[in-house]
Write a protein that binds this DNA or RNA. Structure first.
Lengths: 101, 101
DNA sequence: ATAACCAATCGTACTTTTACGATTGGAAAT
DNA sequence: ATTTCCAATCGTAAAAGTACGATTGGTTAT
């Protein structure tokens, strides 16, 4: 068996914390989340206006945040409304809090 | 001018937070930091024993943590003692706390 | 039906990260 | 002086991340 990080047994908490941290590890994604915290929800288009980045790039960042569980999207035709995923947000907060004790 | 993230103006806090988060974005580095929190300091060799990773890989992770400012190394011949950088740790803690409010 | 609109996905290029073994460098011990 | 030991650095390969423009898909309006 090839020796990769996947074969190391980490505590679930460490893995989950690293997963959240990784999602937070880009200034654009921090900015997106700060924006969402501020006004609870927003549309992809809003962000495209705010950041000088291509629509596809913003979409990619949103996907990362969604995959990490930090946000969720609701269809709100013809737009998609993104909000903080409050449950996972609480989990993340607790994990970081515990980590920094 | 090429349009890259570097040309976007982020708040310093967002950049710093993303920087810390990125450093925390790998389970091995989380585990290293948890280990350091536990026993305040350790040597590279200790970690090489704990993790089934090559010495050079551990060294690389330590460098990342050092570059992000989360740890610091003191020469303690013939070994090098790594400790949490308490000042920056406090900063990181405050930034994450503020972020999750 | 078709046009318009928003956002996801595809294809692509480039950079960065993660891992390894091998080598180097510096300090302590023989 | 030489050997030993620890840890950093180098070189390299494979995978993941970041960005773009172009395309697709699904909804609402015309």
């Amino acid at each position: 068996m090839k020796k990769t990080t996947e074969n190391i047994v980490f505590k679930d908490d460490s893995k989950q914390l690293a997963r959240f941290a990784k999602a937070l590890g880009h200034p654009t994604r921090i900015a997106i989340l700060k924006h969402l915290e501020h006004q609870s929800c927003c549309f992809t288009g809003d962000l495209v206006d705010i950041f000088p980045l291509a629509q596809s790039t913003i979409s990619q960042h949103l996907k990362e945040l969604k995959d990490a569980g930090l946000i969720q999207g609701e269809v709100n035709p013809p737009k998609i409304k993104y909000c903080i995923n409050k449950e996972n947000w609480k989990t993340a907060k607790a994990l970081f809090q515990g980590f920094f004790e």
